[in-house]
Amino acid sequence: MRWRHVRALVIRYTILYTRSAPRVVEMFFWPFMDLFVWGFVTMYLLRVNGAHPSLVTFLLGAMIFWDIIYRAAQGVSISFLEDVWSRNLLNVFVAPVRVSEFIAASYAVGLLKVLTIALALTGGAYLMYSFNLFSMGFALVPLFANLVIMGWSIGMLTTALLMRWGQAAENLAWAVPFLIQPIAAVFYPVSVLPAWLQPVAFTIPASHVFEGMRQVLRGEPLNVERLIWAFVLNLVYLALAAWSFNHMFHVARRKGLLTKLFT
């Protein structure tokens, strides 16, 4: 792995993002729309049902955490798509860039994107709903890291699908996170799911993270076992995603897809 290559790719995507006003607006628009909607929903719930006040923190925390996964994934696959859209993909792959360097760069882009959005959302939630994500303290760091890693896996899988099936797979590719969401215990605990689905839910790293988040927001200490589970599962999925990307890259080179993508 050559850091100079990774750095060059990261600089490129960073300029690409910050240069274009629509991209900057788009980056913040959807997360903030989510924040408005969920914020007002929780306020309404509190008023109508006299629900437990922790509900507000649960839902807003869940919303921000989910966005971390989603944006990290998007950051990874968008780097690839930007190259496809600007007919630059060939320039990248005829350069002496290793697949691992390309992946590392898109991870870095995903991470940068997430840090920016998550900080903005945290600020917004604090100002509008007095919800302070940082009240979670140090537990935030490992939870955040696990969410980002899961986002990376999803992003890489999405990219692999796009590389192999092009435009035909685009809708499916963007849907991957939402296929996982119902069993990832984002807005409700795993115990809400039917008994047979619960073991499945616990194969998803995010389930452990979201359960952990609720523990911490309730004021309990973070369950280390959950954290370990999330981390181990994440490593497995990350390895699988890397393998599938590498495999699809090979298939794409065999079928001549790199040169034909989206044309």
Partner: peptide, 12 residues
């Protein structure tokens, strides 16, 4: 390599 069918990222 250079080709009439590729280009460098257009908004840079």
């Amino acid at each position: 390599f250079s080709s009439a069918y590729t280009s460098l990222p257009y908004n840079l």
